[in-house]
């Protein structure tokens, strides 16, 4: 009887003795996995909660749509180096764009629309699409005359500086006559199909805050609805 009880006692793990190596290994792995999962959840929330790039942050010509650009751009800065007018900068934490990605602000330094597009040529990953060969086909945004109250053209003073500085004036932006109670006004009118979003108009607007702005296409333009009547082109 005594022998039987002793065998039973010794079969159980004695308190205070070392646990088997297997158990230790599993504990270690599960602890690491737990940290990884918890950390990933927190980090993912941190990454997703970062706001999308601000509307005034414009990408270099040929940039892929923002989601694709964010994954393809490897933040090398070769486009920044090759820009002959030094308009591009790499985003710091202070800038409302993913860290290290290249951008320019139209009001400060607009794209000069170089014919040879050196920024696109410099990009090693294709985040600036190498298929862009004609700078007039670039889509950095679209110019929109946002402020009809302050714009001098709407007050009857034919300022038209934005029309005159446009690198593709006459096609992308032109003066269109509009009848108002003040008389016949000449209003700068943007053709979204031709506008590249270079921002020269925004830079040269003579007011203290520009009334014509380059906005990303999804902000600057609407889209026709489904009703056939609304789709008519005047």
């Amino acid at each position: 009887m005594h022998k039987h009880t002793n065998a039973k006692e010794s079969a159980a793990v004695k308190p205070g003795s070392e646990e088997p190596a297997r158990r230790k290994a599993f504990k270690r792995v599960f602890r690491h996995m737990g940290v990884a999962v918890l950390g990933s959840v927190v980090a993912q929330a941190a990454i997703f909660s970062r706001p999308a790039r601000a509307a005034k942050i414009l990408r270099p010509p040929g940039a892929l749509p923002e989601k694709a650009f964010d994954s393809t751009c490897i933040r090398c800065g070769l486009c920044v180096k090759d820009c002959p007018y030094d308009i591009l900068k790499l985003a710091s934490w202070a800038d409302p764009a993913p860290l290290g990605t290249p951008f320019f602000v139209a009001r400060q330094n607009p794209c000069r629309m170089c014919k040879d597009i050196p920024c696109v040529k410099a990009c090693p990953t294709g985040a600036l699409d190498p298929l862009l060969t004609d700078i007039r086909k670039a889509d950095m945004g679209v110019a929109v005359l946002v402020d009809h109250e302050n714009c001098l053209n709407y007050k009857g003073l034919t300022c038209s500086v934005c029309v005159r500085v446009c690198p593709i004036r006459g096609e992308a932006i032109s003066l269109k006559p509009i009848q108002s109670e003040r008389g016949l006004l000449q209003i700068p009118t943007v053709n979204p199909d031709k506008c590249t979003g270079c921002g020269t108009c925004e830079k040269h607007c003579v007011l203290s805050e520009a009334t014509i702005r380059v906005l990303p296409r999804e902000l600057g333009l609407g889209l026709s609805g489904t009703n056939a009547v609304g789709r008519m082109v005047w």
Partner: peptide
């Protein structure tokens, strides 16, 4: 290693370069 795996998994999930958001080397 845990941070490495996290950086790679997060890149796949979020569609952005997860580690480059805070990488002090390039910073």
């Amino acid at each position: 290693t845990v941070l490495l795996v996290m950086a790679l998994v997060l890149s796949a999930i979020t569609g952005t370069l997860a580690w480059e958001n805070i990488n002090p080397i390039t910073l």
